[in-house]
Simulated scan of single mutants.
Amino acid sequence: MVSLHSDDLRMSPPDTNDTTETQLEGVVTRSTGSWYDVRVGDQVIPSRARGKFRLTKQNVTNPVAVGDRVTIRLNDEDNTGLILSIHDRTNKLSRRAAGHRRGEEHVMVSNVDRAWIVQAVKRPQFNPAFVDRVLVATAVNEIPAGLIINKIDLLTEEERAAVMDVHLRYADLGYPVITTSATENLGLARLETELKDQVSVITGPSGTGKSSLLNAIEPGLDVETGEVSESTRKGTHTTTHAELHPLSVGGYVVDTPGIREFGVRDIHPKDLAHFFPDLRPYVNECKFPDCTHDHEPGCAIKAAVDRDAIHPARYESYLRILDSLQEEEEQRF
């Protein structure tokens, strides 16, 4: 388990090349773009990053991420810091950047014990494709993941069967699934237990209730929440930057900005099925060793879908991700 205790954020020895400067080790708890909050013990030091990071990491939108352990040089004149180095990461959760920087890597958080994907039963509508993309990204980076199905107080009796299908779909694959309602105080004790003494990241689209859940289990956080648009049925962005918060029960949680799409990257198309635990057992049973599990005859995965051994929604997610990875691969050449 990743530990983030004040004892770990100790002062490092002075640089032997310049004994007049103070160097400290800490953890990045907040990133706003050009400035980073670095916690050193009980102190938070606003810091900037060396320009060389942006020059050497040209395919990354953010060279420094929340959760990074860093060494900073303290400016005694104004008590700000300069990030000199980023320590090796144990893992990271990243996605393909959108907009004008599409294709670059956007690191959401580093050095976490578990990722929790939040989806609402409605307002906005549950998006299994989003869930599957994040699960692939966490599998690539060896981050355990779980699913939070929120706003269950909005369910009608007619909708319960569909939600139960989703619950079982992921629970049967070994992912922990928690059903919650921040407004009705449902499932919060289980969620708090899961977060205790862990470094967790909470991610999901805007409007799913991530911030409301955090406020419910840790009222002192006072994370800003927003409403879902009645016209688009999509949430408004309230969390504008990632931030690592301490929990009174022990551990830390990273709240991330809401995202509407999660682009998977750094996977070769032929390796994708290995990151689907329900597809993986059939990979080596196909007629052709280079089967993409899309159109080829004798595909064991397609046969498993036909006999309901693989949920059709999961296979559809696989095909969509495969298509995006193949498109990205073609653009490289």
Rank of each mutant, 00 (worst) to 15 (best):
R307G: 12
S324I: 07
L221Q: 02
L214E: 00
P14V: 15
V305C: 11
L213D: 00
K302W: 14
L213E: 01
A216Q: 02
G258D: 09
T193H: 00
L168S: 12
L93A: 02
P289C: 15
N284S: 13
L186C: 03
M1H: 03
L213T: 04
T208W: 00
D308K: 13
G41S: 08
S110W: 05
D306F: 11
S231G: 07
A216E: 01
G81C: 09
T193N: 08
R95H: 14
F262Q: 08
E329W: 08
E227A: 03
F262N: 02
E227M: 06
V166F: 02
N185L: 07
R133N: 14
G226I: 01
E21V: 04
I310Y: 11
W116H: 08
P14M: 12
D266V: 11
P312T: 06
H100V: 04
R30P: 01
V2D: 05
K302H: 12
H241I: 04
E330I: 06
T179L: 08
P13K: 10
T138K: 13
Y318I: 08
H268S: 15
T156Q: 14
T56C: 05
D18P: 14
T16E: 08
R54A: 02
V254I: 14
M11Y: 11
K302V: 04
D78G: 12
P281Y: 14
E194F: 00
K52Y: 00
P176D: 02
P205W: 00
V249P: 01
H245I: 08
S324N: 15
M1P: 12
P269T: 07
H295F: 15
V249Y: 10
D255W: 01
P297V: 04
G235T: 03
D255G: 06
A182T: 03
Q125G: 14
K52H: 05
G204H: 02
Q58H: 10
V121H: 06
E194L: 01
G174H: 07
Y252N: 05
G174W: 13
T16C: 06
Y315K: 06
V38F: 07
N62E: 10
V177E: 03
R69N: 07
K302I: 15
S6K: 08
R96P: 01
N59H: 09
E218M: 06
D132S: 05
R73D: 13
S324Q: 15
P205H: 02
V228L: 08
S212Y: 00
R280S: 10
L9G: 07
T80S: 14
K210W: 00
E77L: 09
I148V: 10
G258P: 07
T180C: 11
H293G: 07
